[in-house]
Amino acid sequence: MSDARARILADVRAALRRTEPLPPSVARGLEQRVAAPQANVQPAVDGDVVERFVAKMTAVNGLVTRLPDRSGISAALEAHCERHHVPTDIVVAPDPALDDIAWSNRFSIERRAARGEDRLSVTGAYAGIAETGTLVLLSGPESPTSLNFLPDDHVVVLDARRVVRHIEDAWATLRSERRTMPRTVNLITGPSKTGDIEQKIHEGAHGPRRLHVLLIG
């Protein structure tokens, strides 16, 4: 196994007309490029980032409800369950940031990772990206990744102040707020879909059939 490692590295170096690893002076330059990443070309994203996020998320059939504050979350979720005929047994991420939601007593709530039979999950989001209408979700004890994929309906509570302009802005935020990468970073742009049968788009392939963003503020 380590033979293969040595062989591959030697073959790569031979192809690059070298026999040794890069000299330290060159390696330092590469280390700098990796340690202080620079954005390359970014498509122009003009105007209000929150409005752009809403427009882009809506364009990919994500549902968006704008709420002035967190007091409307429970009612918005009730409306969602009624409209889409989803039972009110729901799973809410064990995220302390979601502890303050005043749930209607119509809901029966569990705070845990997802199971195969779960119908609806509620999670927070780390950020939103205006450029493409993309959500950024990080794994962690408070935000198990399975909640983003197993239930039929995924409801995401996103603080409008967390919407950034470009993908690179989300990376910059992540680097400044966390020392290390979590196990999983999910960039999510709309509900699950497939085009594998005659190139026609059908939603709800394996992941959520509906993605609903409750955008606060």
């Binding site: 498509p43 450029e131 493409t132 198990p144 990468m181 979590p182 999983t184 970073v185 999910n186």
Partner: peptide, 30 residues
Amino acid sequence: RLLARSATGQEMSVYTTFSTGPRRASDLDG
């Protein structure tokens, strides 16, 4: 930005996922 537009004409595929190592000690899944 190049990939999804070239492949399917989407601006971004639905799921782009970065996996870094196994589940952390306190993670509930993974």
